[in-house]
Each structure stands twice: as structure tokens, then as C-alpha cells.
Simulated assay, not measured.
Amino acid sequence: MTDTKPPSTPTVLSSMPVVVMAVVAVADVVAGPGVGFLPLVSLGPAFSGLVGGWRRTAGFGLVALVLCVALGLYDGLFEERRGYTALAAVAGVTGIGITAAVMRSRREVELASVRSIAEVAQRVLLRPVPLTAGPLQAAVSYTSAVAEARIGGDLYEVVASPHGIRVIVGDVQGKGLAAVETAAVVLGAFREAAHDEPGLVGLGERLERSVARELEGEKFVTAILAEIGSDHEAVLLNYGHPAPMLVRRDGTVDFPQPPAFALPLGLGAHGGDGPKPYRVDFAPGEQLLLYTDGVTEARDEQGSFYPLGDRAYLLKEFDAHRALEALRADLAQHAAGPPRDDAAMLLLRYHGHGEGKSVPMG
């Protein structure tokens, strides 16, 4: 077992064993043998067992035993049972502290293993998007609402297909492992169909069939699909998802809405027409931000939603990744607390067709 103190352990807790034993020793000397402070020396190894490794706990236990013997001789307690009772108390608490430290160390090793597995799962499920795809530069940000998690129910992908650059951003209903499993199904289907289907509608229908096979009851996935070709426009297909934010070259902002409401993926069997594709101008120097509702539904302390359109100026940063990081930091500051929902953002910048030079933003 490793005997290192976790980096996040507060300094106060780390110093508690020394402070407690020092206070008990001083109090015992001042008060004399009649008060019975001596057994409290065992608090030293007890606190050490909570925050330190087993070797550190054993060390404090040995110090506590020596201190107990010294104080017992000073108070004359070994002439009766009180001195030996205090020694037994210190030895017993030290043993329990060592056991607790060993068990905690094992749990930390197991947790580290689980986290490493989660990181591998993240790389497989939400693999890094390409820095450039055709005329586009891409950057992505993902914040999970689940403590210690790095993946959740939001999903994104960018695929350079023979039919153009195809993109998806989606949000699985619910949280936890079930949502992650559904996200994996959607991404797997998208990655395959993006290369095979010549039209965006056909791609969406493939996703609908895949999701319908996996989901049960009223579960669903909101999603928006985009296809960017060589004609300075983007084709969008919206399955009940928040409209993307389009930032024009002059800094003006638009949220292009679909021509009609469409049900999310997984609810196609409930009737209703599928989504209709619609086109928006998307030319060099412009930016397209696709995101999940964890962004726009983030509330501040007064209950106000995050004003995404008013924050478009944060995307003027020349580097796309730094621009998106600035937006993510502003979103976290607005929420003023742990996120209540997963929040994914995918930023696409149109830099032109193979000119090799970036177009300044804003």
C-alpha cells in the first residue's frame, strides 16, 4: 500500500494528530493525574488514520505509546491499572486506525482504476474531434453534471464524409450509465451512416431506427445534425434540439430555427412527420456553435438563464479552443455552483477552402 497523503487533504486535518497529542500532554501535566486525560492521547493515531496512510498512522501510534508511557510514569499511574488501561486504549485505537488507513488506501487504488477505465471509455465514446475538417476548424467543450465523471448523456461528433463535413450534437434523456450507453448507440450509428448515406435525411432515418431499437418506453434523444459542403451553407436537421448559434463575420448573432417542430430521436413511432432539412448561409469568417440545453438552461442565483446570444463576443478570440474555453468559464461563473445538467458545446469556424490562412473573427 502506498503511504502518501492525498493531495486534496486539508493541511488542518493533516496536522491534527500532532496538535491533539500536544494539547493532551500539556493538559495532563497541568491538571495532574486526577483528571484522566491520558487515554485521550489515542486521538493522535485516530486522526492520522482518517487522513494518512498506514505507515504514518503506525508512526503516530508509536509516538502516542511513548508519550503515554512518559506521562504515565510522570503521573505515577503504573502503580495501578489506570496506566495500563491507557496504554491498551492507545494500542487498540492505533490498530483500528491502521486498519482504516489500509482499507482507505485500497479504495483509493480501486477508484483510480475505475477513473482510468472511465478515461478510456471517454476516448472511445467521445473521441477528440479533428482540429480541422475541410474548410472548418473545430473545438469542443464538455462538462458532466455527475460528480467525478467525465462523460454523460451529451454527445458530439465530426465526420469528414464523401458527402461533406457531417456533425451531430445530441442530448440523451436522463443521466448515468444508461444515458452513456444510449449515447454510444447514437454515436456508433452516426459514425457508420455518415459515410454511407448520401442525404442528411437518410442519415437521420438511420439514427432513428438505431435509437428506436435500443430505447424503451418514452425515452428519447434530442439531436441536431449539420452538413457543411463547398457551397458556403450548412444544411441542418433538428430533432427537438436547441437551435444552433450562428455568429456572422460582423459579430451579429442568429439562432436559425427549423421550419417545423419535430420529435426527438426514439419517438418516431409515436407519429408525426420527421424533421425537414433547412439551409443557412455559412461562409468564411463565420462561426456555428452547436450545444445542448445544459448551456442555455444554466441558471444563476436569481434563476435567470444563461444569455448565450449576449456572450457571442467571447468567441472573438483568434484561437478556437481558447474562445470556447472562455465561453465555458463564463458559463460556469454564471451557474455559480455545480452544473445541474451536462453541457456540451461544439464550435465550427469556417476558414475557407484550402487557402491555408485563418480568417479573423469579429
Rank of each mutant, 00 (worst) to 15 (best):
S113Q: 14
E214T: 15
M345N: 11
P256D: 14
L265K: 11
F78G: 05
P307H: 11
G229R: 11
S105R: 04
D75S: 09
L215V: 15
L203G: 03
D154M: 09
P256I: 06
A112S: 13
S116W: 13
A22C: 03
E355K: 00
L346P: 08
V185G: 12
H163Y: 06
E325R: 12
L155G: 03
S113H: 15
I151N: 04
T99W: 00
I228D: 14
V69K: 00
V109N: 02
A139S: 12
S144I: 12
L50M: 10
G61C: 07
A139R: 13
A46N: 13
G272L: 07
L50Y: 06
L43D: 15
S8G: 05
A27V: 01
G72A: 06
G271H: 05
V41H: 10
T143E: 14
K316C: 06
P135W: 00
A89Y: 09
V235T: 13
A234M: 11
G271N: 06
G362A: 07
E119Q: 11
Y74C: 14
T57E: 01
P10V: 00
E157N: 05
V235A: 04
F282R: 01
I228L: 15
G53H: 03
G53Y: 01
G356N: 00
V201S: 02
A183W: 10
G204D: 04
L267H: 09
R279I: 07
T292N: 15
Q137W: 02
H232N: 15
E157S: 04
A58V: 02
A91P: 05
V26Y: 01
F220W: 13
A100Y: 02
V51T: 08
L40V: 14
S15Q: 03
G217E: 11
K357E: 01
R82C: 13
Y84C: 10
G204P: 03
G34Q: 14
L43W: 12
E197N: 02
G272P: 04
P256C: 14
R206Q: 11
A149M: 05
H270L: 10
A312N: 07
L125G: 05
T94A: 00
R104K: 03
A178H: 12
L348M: 11
A283D: 05
A189P: 07
L290W: 12
L73Y: 07
D28I: 13
E79R: 12
G303T: 03
E148I: 08
K219G: 15
G36L: 06
L331Q: 10
Y278Q: 06
G52L: 01
K5V: 03
P198G: 10
G229V: 04
Q333E: 15
L136C: 04
A178Q: 09
Q173Y: 05
L347Q: 09
L71D: 02
E80M: 14
E157P: 00
L187P: 10
L38D: 09
E286K: 01
Y142W: 15
P10E: 02
Y84F: 14
V167N: 02
R299F: 14
G309W: 06
L207E: 08
V247N: 03
G52K: 05
V201T: 04
